[in-house]
Amino acid sequence: MPEFHRKLERSSIGFVLAIVGVASIGGLVEIAPLFTIDETVETVEDMRVYTPLELAGRNIYVREGCYACHSQMIRTLRDEVERYGPYSLAVESQYDYPMLWGSKRTGPDLARVGGKYSDEWHVAHLINPRDVVPESNMPGYGWLARNQLRTDDLSHHLAAMQTLGVPYTDEMVANAPRDAFAQAFPDSAMADAMVERYGAATNVRAFAGDRNTLTEMDALVAYLQILGRLTDAAHEQASAEVE
């Protein structure tokens, strides 16, 4: 053994291999099984994908670094369930690239914020949080209401996610920019086709209220309103546990 180690150390390459070997084990043991696992991620029938507009909103959430202050992961603790709603299931972030579970709650958890407040509330809150919550220390995001949403590359976004295994159809990929627009313009001719592609449960309305253009605010509010509502699995499981 010592002879071996001596040689190992003489040739630093061997030493490096030893470090790699020793250090990789933990990662392999913990992570590798997660990829073959079926139990980690529950299969549920009603899990839907993000619409192009919601995905664009999610990317704004990513861009602005919201994860630094807001988690999207309700733990299996009584107080969290009572404060935020049923605890998060793995399946709920199945299509989250990357996951936004977060690690810090300077602000509250957002895993089930969808539908909790009105669109108007969100818009006012995002423009200046202290207008609606005087004690808040959240920054304002006024530019979201001014910036036109970029939609021309949305097909690329969906295509990339399709490569990664998200069940977007080719039709969804091809129509992504149009669908993003349609979701915030319920009266437009494209709205019906959009709903047909993404399901009747899709929110179709003027999120930010501005009827002239599609803004980043529309996208972010659309995303916030869908949080925790991609599937009912968590609610169903919660009521099953009560019974």
Binding site: E30, L34, V41, A90, S93, Y95, D96, P98, M99, A160
Partner: peptide, 26 residues
Amino acid sequence: AVPISWGSAKSYTIYSGVQDAMTQWW
């Protein structure tokens, strides 16, 4: 990660949800 195109700064990590969480904290 998979870049959405060679002309874009945006990419999607290849991991999602629970796998991403584990990889990320690993």
